[in-house]
Nucleic acid binder design. Structure first.
Lengths: 247, 247
DNA sequence: CGGAAGCTTGAATATGCTCAACACGGGTGG
DNA sequence: CCACCCGTGTTGAGCATATTCAAGCTTCCG
């Protein structure tokens, strides 16, 4: 019982392990996320004021034009960034995976919603602390800059998909994107995964209707490019062939 | 003659004006562009190795996956950033106006073309110098970070246009975008301007064909939303009404 | 087992595309 | 000065792709 308490105590840290806070020890974000750019004392201080939160699919994480008092790191799951027009038409403008940083630094009025697409775990980080750290730690700023540049590349890549690809190329591109995130190293062969997005979300991501998305899935299934176990669980037979279908 | 030489000499600078290099004195980028974040000595040093260049519409500024030895600031004109698919389909993924910074910092392999959309003047800045300055001057890095965040916002805004708007909303959105850049302060009333893009470029920006763009222009003309003087020269009667047509 | 949400399928429709002809405007050369 | 040409933009008719609307089917969960 004492052991369990240790594990879950946010304030404890292991003196044998170069003073990394206990909660952060097994955290992916500590290595590849923004926390990797922090000094040990900074990480310790930050960990005192941060906490984890869990969210169900569809739950709103950051509302449009809402004042938020915390940033976050995605620990697991997929967060979708969306924009909506007055009449309700919706577009997904970005997906965030672990260990992405969540929240718009120096936000003006970017009118953007962040929702849990799948079940999501976050590590909430107080707004003030982060902004303070960014000012004093160039490595952290560089890390955030880097993520922003990557997001910009991804956004532009997606503009090509939205503007110039056919429905079947769009769906293929989406599947390829997800497959790439499941196992970034694998470039060929077969991959199996759970789709983190509903058909509605996929449609909003691709600028299509759910019916069209559904028809394209059916087409891919009947041409044996994919197998569909239960709507969400997909197996891609050949990544390189799927890649060819992306246009 | 001596006077003329003074004006065009890049090495000269006016000692009466806090040692701002001569070439930079009348430059918009010095105030609103990245040069505004430089110390006087840095600006002087940079100006020694920089030079202006002029480009005709359609000229390629940075090639896809090309190694470039210089960054640049846009002094005038419009630069289009494009991506193309194997079969030639093209998508404009961004427009850069003065005094935007041009060139991908820490570029990996962003496979992106930069072309002059209109006649363009650049101030070329040596790659090494800029990267050196970025390392040593946090204000410069912050400025570039800021521009990147703005570009990301613009890209996402445009994803909504590409994915969810109708052809007429797309064209209205494009005209509104250009009108906003002509006079950022003006929100209402009438504006007149030269289109910096051809119909082909507009189509590639909006994910449409030139025929569809043309038809939408005709429709806007016949409903008196715009007047078309000579294909390129446009007058928008009411900005607020145009805004309503953007969806 | 029953109900609801999410997904698929079908038929009719509409929006934007393709292909083709034509108009306009600006430059060149007879 | 006019005729011609070329690049660019417009217009029209027919077509294809994706949407809409409606019905039926799965899957998940209580």
């Amino acid at each position: 019982m004492a052991f369990l308490t240790d594990l879950t105590s946010e304030k404890r840290w292991d003196v044998h392990n170069s003073s990394v806070p206990r909660v952060c020890m097994s955290c992916e974000a500590r290595h590849h996320g923004i926390c990797g750019s922090l000094r040990e004392d900074e990480l310790l201080e930050l960990s005192r004021h941060s906490f984890q939160s869990e969210h169900q699919p569809g739950e709103e994480l950051i509302g449009d034009a809402e004042d938020v008092d915390s940033y976050a790191t995605v620990l697991s799951g997929v967060v979708k960034l969306t924009k909506i027009l007055q009449d309700g038409r919706q577009q997904v403008v970005g997906l965030q995976f672990a260990p992405d940083f969540l929240g718009r630094l120096f936000a003006k009025q970017s009118s953007l919603n962040a929702d849990a697409a799948s079940k999501v775990r976050l590590c909430r980080l107080p707004k003030g602390s982060i902004e303070q750290l960014v000012k004093n730690n160039p490595k952290l700023e560089a890390k955030l800059f880097e993520q922003t540049l990557r997001e910009l590349d991804e956004a532009r890549e997606w503009m090509v998909t939205l503007g110039r690809k056919t429905a079947s190329e769009k769906v293929a591109s989406f599947l390829y994107l997800i497959a790439s995130h499941v196992d970034p190293t694998r470039q060929t062969g077969s991959v199996s995964f759970e789709l983190p997005l509903s058909r509605t979300d996929i449609a909003d991501f691709l600028g299509l209707t759910i019916e069209t998305v559904s028809r394209q899935f059916t087409k891919l299934r009947s041409t044996h490019v994919i197998e569909v176990q239960n709507h969400r669980h997909i197996t891609v037979g050949s990544l390189e062939y799927l890649r060819d279908l992306c246009g």
